[in-house]
Design a protein around this nucleic acid. Structure first.
Lengths: 169, 169
DNA sequence: ATAAAGTCTATTGACTAAGTAGACTTTAAG
DNA sequence: CTTAAAGTCTACTTAGTCAATAGACTTTAT
């Protein structure tokens, strides 16, 4: 699974709209300015998000975009699937299950791919825009413990930064 | 993280060489035939694997390729990183850690990306070619339980097929 | 009416993916 | 020492994708 530049822009734009969730329609230009995104490109992205019913638009003067659902009900998996496709590292979950059933010589390889996709799905299906906001509007200095009520399902608070993964990249 | 067609070919070719680990150099043509891979393309892939010191070649008549290390010491993460780049869904682990430190507005988003990459790394760093072989040379009919000695670190035996992930893809 | 906004279609330039082609080098065997 | 069989290396191609940009069109508040 790869998140493209476009996918990142989409996530940033949605986080911005989530921050301003109470404030009615936000102009493309404001989103682009606040998140430093190319305006014309952002336009296409928001259109796509609109067609997917994640945001809605108000046309004409005083128009703009807003989320169609509360930030706590918009999950990263949904956005990433929309913009960048399946979460699986190869093909998609269905085709992998097909291959696991049919291609006996490479079954175990495809099973590993499916495991990887399931691990990604578990994280991305349980992280919402709201989860991201609650973590990140504390700007800069890393307070080690915040007494934030731990939301059910969010996996974010468990992150320990200095984890030192085995290899790199 | 995305595994390309080329990455899949590389993994298939290496699995084939792992299956024939005892038998000296195997010709490109034989690998291509047995795994049904495009011969000329496979040539380039094997060359790349050779430069990365994963396989070695024997030139001239009677030449071919063989693994440089036992199958149990070649991990999927190594191959995938070589052919398809970093495991992270965006950028690589280092750049993500940089962003987590520097970009306070999107910190939590990058932390999620890093979590996804860590989850993938955990699986792919602990699955070797040998693990794949032990699972898959049982051709066809799905024997539910095999009394295979469970190798330390391999995550494969824990896979339950009918797991029904939340969404698709 | 007009200006400010979103909508839609097309185009671009750079890059990558997935091969293919062909000349070159090395080696075993006769 | 010639030859055939193998790997090596460089170049090319063809199609597609990515990250935009351009510009005409439509809708709406004032």
């Amino acid at each position: 699974m790869k998140v493209s530049q476009k996918g990142l822009y989409a996530l940033q734009a949605l986080m911005m709209l989530a921050r301003h969730y109470h404030q009615g329609a936000i102009k493309i230009r404001e989103v682009a300015y606040e998140e430093d995104l190319p305006e014309k490109f952002l336009e296409l992205i928001l259109l796509e998000l609109k067609n997917a019913r994640i945001v809605e638009s108000v046309r004409g003067a005083k128009g703009g975009y807003q989320l169609r659902r509360p930030p706590a009900e918009i999950f990263l998996s949904e956005i990433i699937r929309l913009i960048d496709g399946p979460l699986a590292p190869f093909g998609d979950a269905d085709s992998l299950r097909e291959l696991i059933d049919r291609d006996s010589n490479h079954r175990s390889l495809y099973m590993v791919f499916l495991q990887v996709r399931d691990a990604a799905a578990k994280i991305l299906d349980s992280t919402s825009l709201a989860d991201l906001l609650h973590e990140s509007d504390t700007h800069g200095s890393g307070a080690k413990k915040r007494s934030r009520k731990k939301k059910e399902g969010s996996v974010l608070p468990m992150v320990v930064h200095g984890s030192k993964a085995p290899y790199e990249s």
